[in-house]
């Protein structure tokens, strides 16, 4: 019987085991490093993601903060960027992410790693129709690729070049 947040803990423990097993076998996702923020709680995780190539985020490492409620995985985790990023669907000062699979289209079939992969896909493929950062949204929507690219790249250089990639041994 699933009592309240036991379900969340059970599922998150499984996700952690999977990540650790992949690390041991050397087949971790090379673009995502994902672990609980502290050993004391499985409800709060930190992820590092590598800016995708051929985007203005290339070369950057971005830190994400992930919080799960006790009704995870029935409800989606909340993901925010801790690293400042200039992107139409990420709030510039607060780091909130606007992504359908983290809202109405979330399904328990997704896990935290899949959610991080979706954030990476969003970096490659911004959706200017539902902007949280209107400046970035207007640039993309208005077709001013160059302005968007150079601004985003500048913020990548300014904010996302300081985090080293963890050694998974």
């Amino acid at each position: 019987m699933m009592r309240n947040n036991l379900g969340a803990a059970k599922r998150l423990r499984k996700e952690l085991q999977c990540l650790e097993k992949a690390a041991t076998n050397g087949d971790s996702d090379v673009d995502i490093f994902l672990r609980p923020t502290s050993p004391s709680s499985l409800l709060h995780w930190t992820a590092l993601i590598k800016g995708p190539i051929d985007t203005p985020y290339e070369g950057g490492v971005f830190k994400l903060s992930i919080r799960c409620g006790s009704d995870y995985p029935l409800s989606p985790p909340t993901i925010t960027f801790d690293t400042k990023v200039f992107h139409p669907n990420v709030h510039f000062s607060k780091g909130d992410v606007c992504l359908d699979i983290l809202k109405k289209e979330w399904s328990p079939a997704w896990g935290l790693q899949a959610a991080c992969r979706a954030v990476l896909a969003l970096l490659s493929d911004p959706d200017a129709e539902s902007p949280l950062n209107c400046d970035a949204g207007n640039m993309v929507r208005g077709g001013d690729k160059l302005a968007y690219w150079t601004t985003a790249e500048m913020y990548t250089f300014e904010n996302a070049m300081f985090l080293g990639w963890p050694d998974e041994e």
Partner: peptide, 18 residues
């Protein structure tokens, strides 16, 4: 150059979304 004035109307968008 950490511009805090950068967001013009995205706080509005944020408020609406919220």
């Amino acid at each position: 150059m950490q511009s805090e004035t950068m967001p013009s109307d995205d706080d509005d968008a944020q408020t609406q979304d919220k």
